[in-house]
Design a protein around this nucleic acid. Structure first.
Lengths: 326, 326
DNA sequence: AGCTGTATGTCAATCGTTTATCATACCGAT
DNA sequence: ATCGGTATGATAAACGATTGACATACAGCT
């Protein structure tokens, strides 16, 4: 691999001048620019980003820590994060924790060891202490962290309320609320339940809550859980699932049990990922502004990394998407 | 951030000795180990991986280039790649091309600029020339590349044949083959069509082929395409979709048009991702050994990066998964 | 002639780690 | 007394780029 010295020699200039061309600073003649460009072309030169990062003490890399890449919500989110980061000239170091705290910790060390510009952190597998000493920006998504630089979330509470209202408007009297109420850490997503419960309480609608293990995601076991619950509460006529994946599995269970949707049972999901449009009927769900959340997170990170002040919390609006299940 | 010098000072040793402890080479006393450990702990020291990479001229990073993270197949694949890489002590630099050649090229430069240990490349958006000068291993997935280090794919041809046989066994006489026959580059996935056609020809079954644009993925437009095709070929009684996403949309179209599945229409998908289990009925599909493909790719990359010889092509078996659509 | 702006060169430090080369020193065994 | 193994130190080069401080040189302008 050619170095800047090789380019300088080839171009008949010094490294200083070549560096000036590369970084576009100081006085440079068109002639010098041309010669450098030619030399780069000829030698197939590419600046060594590693050396750059070492000197700058920071790399143009963002560590993105998620519990599951396979979950459509995170897949969609990562896709949007990548897009936003790419436009800002940043790269993504992918950190998949599989909801394991020890893996999350390891990845945080990897991020700092690699001098990432900052971290975008999803979900609550990591204890607060882990972030205490970090001197890089940490943008939390759907998680409040005192030591975090900034938090981005959607209006979960309103989302829960909208779901409840939709179910109730459809005539539901006995509903199930199935979500991932992570007991370890308090998450903004818990607000979904709160918003939902408030409306139910006010309207006098009976509800039960199911709390699947967070790890359940791997094994598509929401269905079994749901089936058991429907047997236990046979009068159930509505379900609010805190993700579309859970909603889709609920829909399946209904089909299996011969319960018509939305006739006998109404279902509202959350997230509005692609999956919501691939079930039959398509899922009525609460739309999270994933793209905007991703863009916001990246912008906050870049701003914070540049030393600018950033808002501590950003809440983006949700929206009820009416499709076929409620 | 503390450096190795700080650790040396704190431990009352020299950087040489500390480095020896860190890299476990040469003679080191237990006492030295202990003192270094204490100093590291006290200073919260973490080796600067950037400096390490610069010196070693290679980072423990794998560039993974995919066309779409949001597509469940890639999401699943990346998840498995991450797992395999993590176990080998490697990290993932995520490169999402959105099927744009110019973005793919840019990411290849980013990968080389960052001195990744190697690249795992999916799909055919990149011209062959781009890889000519690369002096790092390039593992291609579902793509043959002369200049590539090694190729990993599944037995696409058998997959296509299995799908055809399943449809024909179910009594189909007029089938549609919908796939992403990328005309730009010849892909192993094209073998699916070939295997499928062979069986149909032999059994005297009529088939038509639909070639959606690769970019169609973004917009969930397979459905429209399918609907049009079903109007044009009303006698169609079977569909082989080259991905589960397409199969799911086909299923939806059938529901919309009041065509019963698998009664009037049989559908076989490809990939066997989570989505295949979330439709109603669940998709009959060809299972790709995603986990094994991912593990193979990482192992090949690590081996090649270590200078070991690796097989040029690895083909892994597929399997027909019988569920509810055929 | 002197000034200013433009353009490039020279030199060297710096980022943090690895590693090679010697040198030193102690311990126990021969 | 010498030798080999163990343990550590001192020093410095190398990885590749950036950058600051200065020097030099030529152009055009006053």
């Amino acid at each position: 691999m050619a170095t800047i010295k090789d380019v300088a020699r080839e171009a008949g200039l010094t490294v200083t001048t070549v560096s000036r061309v590369l970084n576009n600073r100081g006085y440079i003649s068109d002639n010098a620019r041309r010669k450098v460009a030619e030399a780069m072309e000829k030698l197939n030169y590419q600046p060594n980003e590693v050396a750059r990062s070492l000197h700058k003490k920071s790399s143009k890399t963002i560590g993105v820590i998620v519990p599951h890449i396979r979950h459509p919500y995170f897949a969609e989110m990562i896709s949007n994060l990548e897009n936003a980061a790419y436009k800002e000239g940043y790269r993504i170091l992918l950190c998949n924790t599989q909801s394991k705290e020890e893996k999350a910790k390891a990845y945080i060390e990897i991020c700092t060891g690699n001098r990432v510009a900052g971290i975008i952190l999803f979900s609550g597998q990591v204890a607060v202490e882990t972030f205490m000493g970090l001197d890089i920006p940490v943008i939390t998504m759907e998680r409040l962290l005192d030591s975090g630089t900034a938090a981005v979330e959607c209006d979960n509470r309103t989302g829960g309320a909208l779901a409840a209202e939709k179910l109730i408007a459809g005539g539901c009297k006995n509903v199930i609320l199935i979500g991932s109420t992570d007991t370890k850490v308090e998450l903004p997503a818990d607000q979904r339940s709160i918003g939902f419960r408030e409306v139910c309480d006010r309207r006098g609608v009976f509800y039960v809550e199911l709390d699947p293990e967070e790890t359940a995601y791997n094994e598509l076991t929401y269905g079994n859980m749901m089936e058991k619950a429907l047997r236990e509460y046979p009068k159930t006529d509505g379900v609010f699932a805190s993700s579309d994946v859970i909603a889709a599995q609920t829909l399946q269970v209904c089909n299996r049990l011969g319960i018509s949707v939305p006739g006998q049972m109404k279902i509202v999901g959350f997230d509005d990922v692609m999956l919501a449009q691939l079930t039959t009927p398509q899922l009525t769900t609460i739309h999270q502004p994933i793209k905007e959340m991703a863009q916001t997170a990246v912008r906050l990170l870049v701003d914070a990394a540049s030393g600018r002040m950033v808002p501590k919390q950003t809440v983006l609006p949700v929206q009820l998407i009416e499709r076929g299940t409620a």
